[in-house]
Amino acid sequence: MEIAPLSIGDYSLQSRLIMGTGGITDLSALEKALVQSGTTLTTVAMRRYSPDTKTSVFSMLERLGIDVLPNTAGCYTVKDTVLTAELAREALETDLIKVEVIADEHTLLPDVIETLEATEQLVDRGFTPLVYTSDDPAVALRLEQAGAAAVMPLGAPIGTGLGILNPHNIELICSRAGVPVVLDAGIGAASQAALAIELGCSAVLVASAVTRAQDPTAMAEAMRLAVEAGLHSARAGRIPKREHALASSPAEGIINPLEDLT
């Protein structure tokens, strides 16, 4: 099956598996996982330059030919988010920005009020915002109306690996969206990445699930295959759900029919 590139604003996404780079200290292990995942777009965070940054993740991604998706992780307000995005655009020469405005450090849940305002301002400034948000279908629509190039609802809180806690909401978001939906946060196992695509998501973003797995390279491959399986499954058209069984074997010609047993 040919998997077409996904248009996110003016950007053409080749692989439907977007990767994160956090949660792993061994850069060579990260590199192996990224290569195995087949990803073509990978997130980075923006932080103060320190001398240790010299062999940076940025130069590694550049060497691997993987595009960077800077995020605004750590921002709590519109002002910080816009400044971080401007710095990212200047440093990395990309209009893509993963908008991430969190409400508090304990839940890391998105502050959707600040997120909406930040999205509007970033659109005005010419960014292509991919917006991390809650799994609220009403908020997802508002973000799209504000100019989000993609909406990225969480399956579960960041780093929990709890999977997709409200599949119905994710499905509803996807069914009404006019922009790509990327499942972001919460995935722990490959089956959950496949489910995200089956529910209608166009792509999946995975970070901790791979980088904190016991074998990141093996999990990266599992995620790649799961996303591909999900795309096949979604395209194949699943059977409708039924309340009662429906035999697939013929009802005629059964030996020892039930009435003979009485």
């Binding site: 949660g23 980075v44 965070a45 940054t53 960041i158 780093g159």
Partner: peptide, 8 residues
């Protein structure tokens, strides 16, 4: 003065 670092 900022740069890209690892992050989700």
């Amino acid at each position: 003065i900022v740069t890209a670092v690892q992050g989700g």
